[in-house]
Amino acid sequence: MADAVKLDAPKLKAKDFKSSQEVRWCPGCGDYAILAAVQSFLPELGLERENIAFVSGIGCSSRFPYYLNTYGLHSIHGRAPAIATGLAVSRPDLSVWVVTGDGDALSIGGNHLIHALRRNVNLKILLFNNRIYGLTKGQYSPTSEPGKLTKSSPVGSVDAPFNPLSLALGSEATFVARTLDSDRAHLHEVLRAAAEHEGSAFVEIYQNCPIFNDGAFEVLKNPDTRDESLIRLRDGEPIRFGDKVVVQSGYGLQVKDAAEVDESEVVVHKADVDDPAYAFALSRLSGVALDHTPIGVFRSVKRPTYDKGVRSQVDEASAGVDRKEALDRLLHAGDTWTVL
């Protein structure tokens, strides 16, 4: 956000970010909670509304921009990161956000996502993962669990799913985080960290689809199971949850009973570890069953951003150039001849 126009203290409130459009998700959709969290978070950016742009693709989540009183572009399936790249490169004064879903970002738009991340374009990418195709009424998605029974997989899906965070890390992402639709405070905290990050920030938000995949993240929400399943990552603190801890094991990480392990063996979380192998290992703690699922900031490192690199080459070359005169020189350069 470094280039965006910071204002002293615009006293905007959540309601100032509500648009006049009626919100039309299904009753009970996790998207409502995320929208409310984003609207309550946006004033924290300290930006005027006109300096914020939300770009989305296609899917339930991609309706998001219509409901925010900022600039908004609801584009086409999977292409939001590409369109937002053009906007972010050419407009350093804007804070550009991408809202996408598991189908939009990981299936039809997978190529744009990985390239935005490896370039480190200054975009904040919010991936609402509900592990199902909602808008098209219930087909399995690239994050659905194998064996999933859906309209397009009546005897069970045989697709192996993506782990979105592993994919993002493999794509050289500089900021990778995960949060939950139902945990407003945590969502808020992760959004703040993403906004502060210079470069691509990838945030996976587990989002419940009450119609086609209800309860997909119940294990992380239910008081009976969440303590054994949900790992809250806190920078500089040992990773522990319930009566379990995370320790190094071979080339990766492993969950162990706290009682079996000496305190000194417990891994202390650091998001700025240069080697992505650590964050990757964290992302592999949970499988499709969501056992041992970390949430929080997995990785946050500094790397030059693409948009700044592109702009600095143009700015350097064009500073003080009289373009019309330069055009005349370009046309007359090299072999020319005059007919009298």
Partner: peptide, 28 residues
């Protein structure tokens, strides 16, 4: 031709190429 304020982005594919151009048009 960067001295003319021309930005070129070699995109990851043809779709991204036109998408980025459209995003830039959206931005003016």
């Amino acid at each position: 031709h960067k001295r003319f304020g021309v930005t070129t982005v070699q995109a990851e594919d043809e779709i991204a190429a036109v998408g980025a151009a459209l995003g830039a048009s959206y931005g003016g």
